[in-house]
Design a protein around this nucleic acid. Sequence first.
DNA 1: CCACTGGGTCAACGCCCGTAGAATGAACGG
DNA 2: CCGTTCATTCTACGGGCGTTGACCCAGTGG
Lengths: 186, 186
Amino acid sequence: MTRAAQRRQSEERILTAARRIFAELGYDRTTIRAVAAAAGVDGGLVMHYFGSKDLLFARASEIPADELPGGTADEVAEALLTSLGRRLTDEPTASLAVLRSMLTNADAADRYRAAGEPQLNQLTEAIPSSDADLRASLLSAIVHGVIAERYLLRLTHLADASPEQIVDLLRPLFQSLATPPEQQPR
Amino acid sequence: MTRAAQRRQSEERILTAARRIFAELGYDRTTIRAVAAAAGVDGGLVMHYFGSKDLLFARASEIPADELPGGTADEVAEALLTSLGRRLTDEPTASLAVLRSMLTNADAADRYRAAGEPQLNQLTEAIPSSDADLRASLLSAIVHGVIAERYLLRLTHLADASPEQIVDLLRPLFQSLATPPEQQPR
DNA sequence: CCACTGGGTCAACGCCCGTAGAATGAACGG
DNA sequence: CCGTTCATTCTACGGGCGTTGACCCAGTGG
């Protein structure tokens, strides 16, 4: 195998292992040695490629931004539900790594805020109300609360439920938050 | 000062410092030395009194159970809102210590589950629906999600909002979750 | 007043971690 | 074919941690 390919493969194996272990144990409890062992390489190699544990975490927890399409409050709420349904269907390991670490690691907390900010802004703009920012924050808190308890804490009823069931139960809540009283149809 | 009083005072100072630091940094990042320093004593004394870091955490994070009165689904939902309002008004340090650590510490996760279980059961029993357990879990997830983002992540809009404002926005959501369709007045 | 209990301190041990740097050997380019 | 690059490993250092046990000294009870 060529050297370039070898390197790409090793980096990929390290990143995959890092994502899994960071998501399982959080930043503090994952050790570079453990990641290296899971990837089948030596710890020094991880250093050599990624520079430090912080940088490895940064690379392992890069999250593809899940943009919400603009539109009316109802449409944006529905888009947020769809996005949630997707994240409840296939487990997003990289964002779980951030979620698992955000309460005990400042970097992870920043990354969490940064990842949620565009969604938050889009929600805020779509909600026609003076307390739009608080409503948007509550929506975001609900989404992340559900994901955290399902995947990280594995509370049985949330872990066992189907994505559709959860999304259906949350739909009226999202509509209620997205639609202030003075805008609701009577 | 008598020796018994001296000891009680020292234990109390240690526990208070431990609660604050555990809530701030989480289990892993708080060191016994830091707790001892904050309490103005030596690290060895903490060991002497509490036996181990785990036991100290257990003692520091004892949570007074916040029982929900029974009743109809609506009443229980309102009681849950009241309880939330109380927790949004005066910061519950001990339960923040658990919350901060639950994603990275198995003990904290267990304590979190144990603390939420009675509320969860009471909610489940009050909700007249086959998916009552999922609805109750969602309610619990929302409560904890809001508290976590307000106190631990300090997302500005949630941290700045008044408890009343938050409770008022959540009331319709709680009613929606507590009242399944076939029970709703038309 | 004296023997003793017990609150409190201090220094040290053993462990694990992130990180650094030298060493090795196989792919590479001319 | 040979010098060089580079993927990879190995060994070690320095620091922080939980935990331990010896030690000191002020209350305490008789």
